[in-house]
Write a protein that binds this DNA or RNA. Structure first.
Length: 493
RNA sequence: GGUCACGUGGCCGAGUGGCUAGGCAGAGGUCUGCAAAACCUCGUACAGCGGUUCGACUCCGCUCGUGACCUCCA
């Protein structure tokens, strides 16, 4: 059998809507850019899903041997509070409400975002650029677009000429939109009088005196347009044509469509080779979104302190829950599903523990290489984590059976299973035990082991009353004892 | 209104033109002093109506239902 990492990796390119073999422009290097959060409020669980999806991609690419440069931005300026171009900057508005400096708001929610990423075991990117840190580059790109004839200046603002661009270039290719249909469905928004066409979008916006975040530019005081930062920062760090650009489905239009247009206008060619979009997390069938008011923060999730939550859920339970669904499908949140994932994860983690001290036999009853191959096949098929997890549970069954003496694996077989399970569960899925093994846990384990010995002695003299009393009282403290052939183990309730 | 998805057993969710997804829950069994865990077995699902086909849950059409995007949104 060939080495798994030499097998082709197929990815659905949302630009072509087809599964394509992924081949980086300059192997073994891969450039990956993902649209990060806007740091003016807490991230909610839907955001976490997207970042988990791309964490899985990053982990998989790394696992199969690619050297990935992963760039994920922080949007700390530029998005408006509503669909009115004259509206306040979201961050500026939030700052006034909270009487904070804009950059203080940015820092607060950036810190919070990082805490959440750590909580869900989402690996940090290699570069995490901020929009405010790349104003010079953004102005330079605006100028290149003006020079190319697709940007025009009105009253200190610069707009992108979409109909002009669309005459000779594909606009709407990514999102499957046609320019005439877009024009027919345009909403009548304010601030339109400056634009030549309602489809045009801002590259640079003039700042009103009320604005707190603004910078001098060749066109006057202002701030960069909504879509510019990603174009600038992705190409700055990954090159003017890079491998993978990811983000949530809801960014496809107009955000990513505009990015494509900007890059073509400024640099003469499309910026991205493979586009990848993660689907939405829904609640009762509806997209979780700030505007829907159906979102909850990771903190509410863990404490269970929210009307939609029956109880609190651990971050690893949630991560596992998300990975049991393919990234391109919508995933509906429900308490029932979360509880099912919680139980499943417990069983998986219990098996991972047992795996550490399986006893080897003289033969191999199971073909671990075949299991491994199925895991790699699943992941190489458009990151099919649900199928890979199904195979991992086949591994769980094998572990338990070997542990029960119902199946036999050789030393080599056990080693192979160990490597496979650790790679899939820890490295690729990024799952770990909900509770860390800390020093205090070691003390706890020592104490419980003492009680287990006392109970074993009681049982040896068939004093089941004392034995059961020990077990029941420990159970009352949340310590569950389990008798096995090899002896008694314990876990927390 | 336009565009695009989706509708799978009690729940969540894969997948496929003919052959077991998997998890959780449920039933029976093995093991056990009891319990828990573990293991084995089980339900014979694919919105509805037509069509293509030797054969469709899987392909095509229509109907119904749900959702996403079209505006900031992961």
């Amino acid at each position: 059998m060939s080495e798994p990492r030499e097998l082709p990796f197929y990815l659905t390119n949302t630009l072509t809507r087809r599964k394509e073999e992924f081949v980086p422009a300059e192997p073994p290097h891969v450039g990956l850019y993902v649209c990060g959060p806007t740091v003016y409020s807490d991230v909610h669980l839907g955001n976490v899903r997207t970042f988990t999806t791309f964490d899985l991609l990053y982990r998989w690419l790394t696992h199969i041997g690619y050297k990935v440069r992963y760039v994920r931005n922080i949007t700390d300026v530029g998005h408006l509070v509503d669909d009115v171009d004259e509206g306040e900057d979201k961050i500026a508005k939030r700052a006034r409400l909270e009487k904070l400096e804009p950059m203080e708001v940015v820092q607060k929610y950036t810190n919070g975002f990082h805490d959440v990423m750590r909580l869900f075991n989402i690996l940090p990117p290699n570069i995490e650029p901020t929009a405010t840190g790349h104003l010079i580059e953004q102005m330079a790109m605006v100028q290149r677009i003006i020079d190319s004839g697709f940007g025009y200046v009105v009253n200190g603002s610069v707009y992108f000429d979409v109909p002009g661009f669309a005459k000779d270039h594909a606009y709407g290719e990514l999102s499957g939109r046609r320019i005439d249909e877009l024009l027919a469905n345009t909403r009548d928004t304010e601030g339109m009088e400056e634009k030549r066409s309602p489809l045009d979008f801002a590259l640079w916006k003039r700042a009103e005196p009320i604005h707190l975040m603004k910078w001098p530019s060749p066109w006057g005081e202002g701030f960069p347009g909504w879509h510019l930062e990603c174009s600038v920062m992705s190409t700055k760090y990954l090159g003017r044509t890079f491998d993978i650009h990811g983000g949530g489905m809801d960014l496809k239009f107009p955000h990513h469509e505009c990015e494509i247009a900007q890059s073509i206008a400024a640099d003469g060619h499309a910026p991205v080779r493979y586009w990848m979009h993660g689907n939405m997390l829904t609640v009762n069938g509806r997209k979780m979104a700030k505007s829907e008011g159906n979102g909850f923060t990771p903190e509410e999730l863990i404490t269970g302190n929210h009307k939609l939550l029956d109880t609190g859920y651990g971050p690893m339970t949630v991560r596992f829950f998300m990975l049991q669904c393919h990234y391109a499908s919508t995933l509906d949140f429900s308490n029932e599903a979360l509880q099912a994932s919680e139980r499943g994860l417990e069983r998986l983690m219990a098996a991972m523990d047992k795996l550490e001290d399986l006893k080897a036999g003289a033969r191999d009853d199971v073909d671990i290489a075949a299991l491994e191959q199925r895991c790699y096949d699943a992941m190489n098929d458009d990151l099919n984590s649900p199928v890979m997890i199904a195979e991992v549970f086949e591994g769980v069954r094998i572990i338990n059976s070997v542990n029960d003496g119902k199946l036999v694996l050789s030393t080599a077989g056990i080693d192979q299973l160990r490597r496979l399970m650790r790679a899939m569960v820890h490295d690729v899925l990024g799952l770990k035990a909900e509770r860390d093994t800390s020093d205090s846990d070691k003390v706890m384990d020592g104490l419980v082991q003492e009680f287990i010995r006392m109970r074993a002695e009681a049982k040896a003299r068939r004093d089941f009353a004392v034995g059961d009393a020990i077990r029941d009282r420990l159970a009352g403290l949340g310590i569950l004892l389990k008798d096995t052939k090899e002896g008694t183990t314990w876990e927390r309730a």
